[in-house]
């Protein structure tokens, strides 16, 4: 069946139309509640006012968005590189894994919101925010990559041994490709989490009275009872999260579509 014919299948239309219909209904209900109960903007602004604020304050909001996204991206990148590298080191040297893995878990299970104020004392603010984004995001990459590196097909491993493969051939030709679906799953989780980490750290930093990221704008607007701007900033953060989700999903799809079941169409 051609892709064009598939696009008009009822289920595909529903999957596109229904979420949009839900959104429209939600905004309509929001607007109705605001006008019906005549709510003042400092309690609940209507969707129109939020949209207007988004446009009027775009200079400051988008500048802040840029700051937050940069932190998120840096944290994400460091988490991905760090997570994969550490997992490979763990895989090659079990001693290192035994020594360090418990602490990787401890860093992960300690709530980042509780670590952030401490980091802000010892690191410059931008460094602390970045560290938070990294702490939250790196563990999923580490854990998934470790799982992937350990789930190599045993017969394939034997085959490499039979042909006298060196350790780097085994790593780059067998283990890392085998682990790729798991690594990408970790990266997808890390993308969303690095945004969470950046926002948490910005809010912690904001309460210390500094910063210019989007989460800081939310905290600042909250002190000033500028509720429409809080909503506008929240919407931007939410959109950023959605874009990150789709970007990492697309990355995963394009890297796996030729061979992995998760990305292969059911149709034959």
């Amino acid at each position: 069946m051609s892709t064009r014919a598939r696009a008009f299948e009822p289920e595909r239309i529903l999957r596109l139309v229904l979420p949009i219909a839900t959104l429209v209904l939600g905004i309509a209900a929001w607007r109705f509640v605001v006008t019906f109960f005549a709510l003042p903007p400092y309690v609940l602004p209507g969707p129109g006012l939020v949209w207007q604020t988004l446009i009027d304050d775009r200079a400051v909001l988008f500048e802040s968005l840029g700051v937050t996204l940069l932190t998120t991206f840096q944290g994400f990148l460091l988490a991905t590189i760090g997570g994969i590298t550490l997992a490979v080191v763990f895989n090659l040297a079990r001693v290192v894994e035994y020594a360090l893995y418990p602490y990787a878990v401890i860093i992960q299970v300690t709530p980042v919101l509780a670590i952030a104020p401490l980091l802000l004392i010892y690191l410059p603010q931008q460094g602390a925010v970045l560290a938070c984004a990294w702490i939250v995001a790196f563990f999923p990459v580490l854990a998934n990559t470790t799982l992937g590196l350990n789930s190599v097909d045993r017969n394939l491993a034997d085959l490499y041994r039979l042909y006298g493969a060196s350790w780097d051939q085994v790593l780059f030709r067998l283990k890392l490709p085998s682990a790729l679906p798991h690594i990408l799953a970790g990266i997808r989780i890390a993308g969303g989490l690095s945004l969470v980490g950046a926002v948490v750290a910005e809010i912690a930093a904001g309460s210390a009275g500094a910063g210019s990221g989007l989460a800081y704008r939310i905290a600042e607007s909250s002190y000033r009872l500028n509720i429409p701007r809080m909503f506008a900033a929240l919407i931007l953060l939410s959109v950023a999260g959605i874009v990150i989700f789709f970007a990492t999903s697309a990355l995963s799809y394009f890297m796996l579509r030729r061979w992995h079941e998760s990305a292969v169409s059911r149709e034959r």
Binding site: D153, N155, L156, D158, L159, L162, L174, P177, L180, R258
Partner: peptide, 15 residues
């Protein structure tokens, strides 16, 4: 000087 064929095809799915 040995070729080995396993019970499963044992192919690398990414290649």
């Amino acid at each position: 000087d040995i070729g080995f064929v396993f019970q499963e095809p044992t192919l690398m799915p990414w290649a």
